[in-house]
Deep mutational scan, measured.
Amino acid sequence: MQRVNMIMAESPGLITICLLGYLLSAECTVFLDHENANKILNRPKRYNSGKLEEFVQGNLERECMEEKCSFEEAREVFENTERTTEFWKQYVDGDQCESNPCLNGGSCKDDINSYECWCPFGFEGKNCELDVTCNIKNGRCEQFCKNSADNKVVCSCTEGYRLAENQKSCEPAVPFPCGRVSVSQTSKLTRAETVFPDVDYVNSTEAETILDNITQSTQSFNDFTRVVGGEDAKPGQFPWQVVLNGKVDAFCGGSIVNEKWIVTAAHCVETGVKITVVAGEHNIEETEHTEQKRNVIRIIPHHNYNAAINKYNHDIALLELDEPLVLNSYVTPICIADKEYTNIFLKFGSGYVSGWGRVFHKGRSALVLQYLRVPLVDRATCLRSTKFTIYNNMFCAGFHEGGRDSCQGDSGGPHVTEVEGTSFLTGIISWGEECAMKGKYGIYTKVSRYVNWIKEKTKLT
């Protein structure tokens, strides 16, 4: 034993070699072989497995989906700052455009905790909710729209109204504003409101030439003092309507412009014939205590009207009353817009006519005020429907199939267009061939041609 100890002390290297040989010859039971080890760690190889990531292109799944990435790591994937920024906006807080917040056709661009709407022409605001041009839906104005110097929408209202708090709607500024039905039992019968379409306001006024200088022999019209197929109006439903009495009662109609003036057809009036105007009328054979009678003290036909040349060209006249009318729910003026808007309103496509005229061709006159909704007829169809001249200051309205029309005794009465609950004068009943005849239409004086003249002559002093 002493000898062994001496050998170990003198030859430590020998001992180490012996131990190493023993270990190498022993069977290893701690580690699995290569094949079995792979069965336990069965993990798919990654895209760049075996390579240094710093030297390969980034992978979106590896960089940002398996674990949260930084902007720089995302930049490695896209290799483009702009594309990385677009991805980053949604990656950080989701897609803010998912709810489609942009209105009126706006395009949404996502941002971090926010979004941006790219608005089409005519709109602005956070969600493109603000109209900035009158060309689109009248700028959301209830009545009139004008573009300011910086191309912003400025709404306005006709006389007797003021802008509401929203700067879009119009509200009454006087007790009985024009064009409004205020009798409670008839307010439910107000005709369907007309909503502004998209309009090209630059070209809204037709490029028409008034044929002022045409000389033409007097034409022989049949029954051209021209509501057939209409309905009984309720008291106060058309408070701007008046009836004219002269040699015979209810020979023509008219509309209240203001307390002192009536507008009617020029062919209705004769110099030297006494005319009485009755406002607030409903049943011409009954006294309903809503009527107001006034005498006409002055007749002003349009300066281009000449019955000797043509009885229905420039067929418009103004009547001055001896005493002002007292405005109330049964006696209310009709609204008159400017030339541009009167023309736009007419193009809405349908209007209402009213009167006490004959209820059928050569038949009896109506006792109760009649009204009828009539569609506008395109000019080409209008011209083809008659052998008589249709001037540019006239328009056609009615039904091709016949059966409904204005008729004798309705002449001078109103053709009105309702705009968001307020009625505007767009025409004056003038003439036609018979009444409600198939293929024939009622012919009306186009008020847009005469609004400046009306307003100039009827100013209240």
Score class of each variant (00 low, 15 high):
Gln2Leu: 14
Ile7Phe: 08
Met8Trp: 12
Ala9Ser: 12
Ser11Glu: 05
Gly13Tyr: 12
Gly13Ser: 13
Cys18Asp: 02
Leu19Arg: 02
Leu20Val: 10
Val30Pro: 14
Ile40Tyr: 11
Pro44Ile: 11
Lys45Cys: 04
Tyr47Ala: 11
Asn48Gly: 06
Asn48Met: 13
Lys51Pro: 15
Val56Leu: 12
Gln57Cys: 03
Gly58Arg: 06
Gly58Tyr: 05
Leu60Pro: 15
Met65Gln: 15
Glu66Trp: 03
Glu67Leu: 04
Arg75Pro: 10
Glu79Met: 13
Asn80Arg: 11
Thr81Trp: 04
Thr85His: 05
Phe87Val: 15
Trp88Cys: 05
Gly94Arg: 10
Gln96Glu: 13
Cys97Arg: 01
Asp111Thr: 05
Ile112Cys: 03
Trp118Arg: 14
Phe123Glu: 01
Glu124Tyr: 07
Lys126Trp: 06
Lys126Ser: 10
Glu129Gly: 04
Glu129Gln: 06
Glu129Thr: 02
Thr133His: 05
Asn135Ala: 12
Ile136Glu: 14
Phe144Pro: 00
Asn147Pro: 09
Val154Trp: 08
Cys155Lys: 01
Ser156Tyr: 14
Glu159Cys: 03
Leu163Ser: 03
Ala164Leu: 06
Glu165Pro: 14
Asn166Gln: 03
Gln167Phe: 11
Cys170Thr: 02
Glu171Lys: 10
Val183Leu: 09
Ser187Trp: 10
Lys188Gln: 11
Glu193Ala: 12
Val195Lys: 09
Phe196Pro: 11
Val202Asp: 08
Asn203Asp: 06
Ser204Phe: 13
Thr209Met: 12
Leu211Asp: 11
Ser217Cys: 06
Ser220Tyr: 05
Glu231Cys: 08
Ala233Ile: 08
Gln237Arg: 06
Asn245His: 13
Asp249Thr: 13
Ala250Pro: 08
Val263Ser: 01
Thr264His: 02
Val269Gly: 04
His282Glu: 03
Asn283Gln: 09
Thr287Trp: 11
Thr290Val: 06
Thr290Gln: 10
Lys293Leu: 10
Asn295Arg: 12
Ile300Leu: 10
Tyr305Phe: 08
Tyr305Ile: 01
Ala307Gly: 13
Ile309Thr: 07
Asn310Tyr: 05
Ile316Ala: 01
Ala317Trp: 00
Tyr330Gly: 04
Tyr330Glu: 04
Thr332Met: 07
Ile334Glu: 01
Tyr341Trp: 05
Phe345Leu: 07
Phe348Cys: 06
Phe348Ser: 14
Gly351Asp: 01
Arg358Met: 08
Phe360His: 14
Gly363Phe: 07
Arg364Pro: 07
Ser365Ala: 14
Ser365Lys: 14
Gln370His: 14
Arg373Asn: 11
Asp378Pro: 14
Asp378Phe: 03
Ala380Gln: 08
Lys387Leu: 06
Thr389Glu: 10
Asn393Gly: 14
Ala397Tyr: 01
Ala397Val: 06
Phe399Cys: 07
Gly403Asp: 15
Cys407Ile: 07
Gln408Thr: 15
Ser411Arg: 12
Gly412Pro: 12
Glu418Gly: 05
Gly421Lys: 11
Thr422Pro: 01
Ser423Pro: 02
Phe424Asp: 01
Gly427Glu: 01
Gly427Pro: 01
Gly427Trp: 01
Trp431Thr: 09
Trp431Glu: 09
Glu434Gly: 07
Tyr444Phe: 15
Tyr450Leu: 01
Val451His: 04
